[in-house]
Amino acid sequence: MDIALETEQLGKRYGRRWALQDCSFRLPAGRIVGLVGPNGAGKSTLLHLAVGLLQPDAGEVRIFGRSPYDNPATLPDIGFVAQDTPLYRDFTAAELVQLGGRMNVRWDAALARERLAQLGIPPKLPVGRLSGGQRAQVALALALAKRPRLLLLDEPVASLDPLARREFLQSLMGSVTDSGTTVLLSSHLLADLERTCDHLVVLHSSRVRLAGAVDDLVDAHRQLVGPRHVGETIAGVGTVVRARHTERQSTLLARIDGVVDPEWTVHDVTLEDVILAYLADGETTVARTDWEVPA
């Protein structure tokens, strides 16, 4: 299977703080991958490493087998839309399409024009005067016009209202499903990703908590309700991701690896349940000491 993006022990440090650490995963080509995590989890750092804007401080990242940092040869394969969709605000959309043609080897200007026409984006207006949603669409159209094999989108819908958000994601899906483009899009909102992604990477506190195909992840986890659990092993349960206890019973979200002890009632989980369970297990102790608040 073709690997679009692969990281190995990847790490990036700002001063003494690690923004990303021990990051290892593989994204098979052709997937729509969601990169989830709260603000500050390291999502942008990971994407900037992947597109070669940043140099790794540890480990490696490879795009179709090549390291992207200081290597313009990887650029034609990657379409990138940075957070807040930065574009030259005094350029018109038409000029940006023209610009893309001059700065790229492979450039499908017709594709960009057709998309922008379909979306009713005015070509002669400086993009600084477009709405946030329109600007995001322009940025996406420019990224798609490169005909990239890997499309990286950093919080593409964060600044959009719910309607524009849905439209954006729909138009994104419409354009990548046929071409076989691998998409990695980050968001701190689960709802955005649930409908669109078939693969998931969960980042929290600069580490990868979970990575895999959505179906596998949902299949592998169950919610268990049973007698109060104090850490003993349960038959059929691999790891307990999160546990909540009342006086007499415990509710666990766990990765299962066989038939579960019949003493426990087993429920199916949604993707959201799984992600929330992994995100809840964050490191708040550091913040507590920083704030001089007792844990």
């Binding site: 900037h48 597109v51 070669g52 804007l53 200081d70 290597n71 313009p72 650029l75 034609p76 990657i78 990138f80 940075a82 957070q83 807040d84 930065p86 574009l87 030259y88 605000r89 893309g100 700065m103 790229n104 080897v105 492979r106 450039w107 940025a139 490169k146």
Partner: peptide, 15 residues
């Protein structure tokens, strides 16, 4: 203005 992230991720490298 963050536009370097746009300019430097087109086909030509930043150099």
């Amino acid at each position: 203005q963050g536009t370097h992230r746009f300019a430097w991720t087109q086909g030509v490298g930043r150099r």
